[in-house]
Design a binder for these strands. Structure first.
Lengths: 197, 197
DNA sequence: CGTGCGATTGAGTGAGATCAAGCCCAGTGG
DNA sequence: CCACTGGGCTTGATCTCACTCAATCGCACG
């Protein structure tokens, strides 16, 4: 399935149809409140599995940040695959646990860290994801907007922008353009991030 | 295994030993920062499974809020159980997904809700847990302290206390004693909580 | 009868939100 | 080619809500 920038893969409240894996691009997991408050519950990068949920209806919308392609499986596909390959269920459990760890890490960020710490944690986390993909982790590519980052970190756009500026001023990072950040002082960023994953 | 009030089942940073299920009592999942900031990443009630993690070391301490008893399984017990009962792995995946849903729900609370909304959400959530156990859900028993609740909701004790007072003043709840809360206006509480569940 | 912890309440402060303005750049159309 | 437009980002000024600090109360426990 191909998704163009801004398109929705699934919408909050819809009946659950199936599961997906992201092969190319970048997605965001969104929840909205009636009054407009917005949460980005996570970003999805190539290789990520989408569909860990015990609920019958989607709890979040999943939207494309940039043009993306996903691989879709219906629920019945899923069931037959699982019964054919008992290994698969174990692998999925493993992945679900990793995602749970990551999500719990975000709790600390949202509950107790200040804006600089949250942003540093986010950057370090993005760098780690790149390393896992075998890419250079001294630079990070942020396909999402500052607003997305703000709604992910539980801050406002302005605060996110100011935090970027402060990290740049103290020499921890350099921003080549909006979407490319170089991590100059990894020790400093790690120290700020500390509490997270 | 028996745990007395305040005792630790596992400590953050220890090598992962096994998994557990809580049979009686109440536990809290804790993470601490060097500077003393504290997060309660969750509360565990009887029936809950403890041990969903992809990490080799515990990411949180698990402490007894009140005297508790848990059932312990070593990692090898777990592996043999799983290979003997393929059903078990599915059941665990299901449970992990439910826990993931719950944890993601908390993200919205921490990122975007104000203190009253967070507290209302917490109370509604605790009531729902009671209903699932087949108990009366118009009253809620809170074995934990106000400090625990504050560190769970990302607030200070004072703010939690003030939020309790405001909910009491507007007639949404009644507090018989510190640990017993009656939910008087469920519609109001649900409206406040909205984003969670 | 003290002692200490947990909870509540009040007063004052400050970090991040809100409001507002301007910049940069890509896309569009004349 | 350039003017115009609009969205995303940054920066400054102000405000506000939750935090901090402090005092008191109540209750359990030695």
């Amino acid at each position: 399935v191909r998704l163009s920038r801004g398109g929705a893969l699934v919408r909050e409240g819809e009946r659950r149809r199936g599961v997906f894996t992201l092969t190319k691009g970048a997605l965001r997991r969104i929840r909205l409140l009636p009054d407009g408050r917005r949460l980005v519950a996570g970003f999805l990068m190539p290789g990520d599995f989408i569909g860990f949920s015990g609920a019958s209806h989607y709890r979040h919308s999943i939207e494309a940040i940039i043009d993306s392609t996903v691989c879709a499986f219906s629920m019945s596909d899923m069931r037959t695959l699982c019964s054919d390959h008992p290994q698969l269920e174990r692998e999925l459990l493993e992945r679900a646990c990793v995602e749970l760890d990551a999500t719990r890490g975000n709790l600390m960020s949202l509950a107790r860290l200040n804006p600089m710490e949250r942003l540093a944690g986010f950057l370090v986390d993005m760098a780690m994801r790149r390393r896992r993909q075998g890419q250079d982790d001294s630079e990070v590519i942020l396909p999402m907007t500052r607003t997305d980052i703000a709604d992910y970190l539980g801050l406002t756009v302005e605060t996110v922008s100011r935090s970027f500026t402060r990290l740049r001023q103290e020499g921890s990072i350099a921003t080549d353009d909006r979407h490319h950040v170089r991590l100059l002082d990894r020790a400093r960023l790690d120290a700020l991030a500390e509490a997270r994953a």
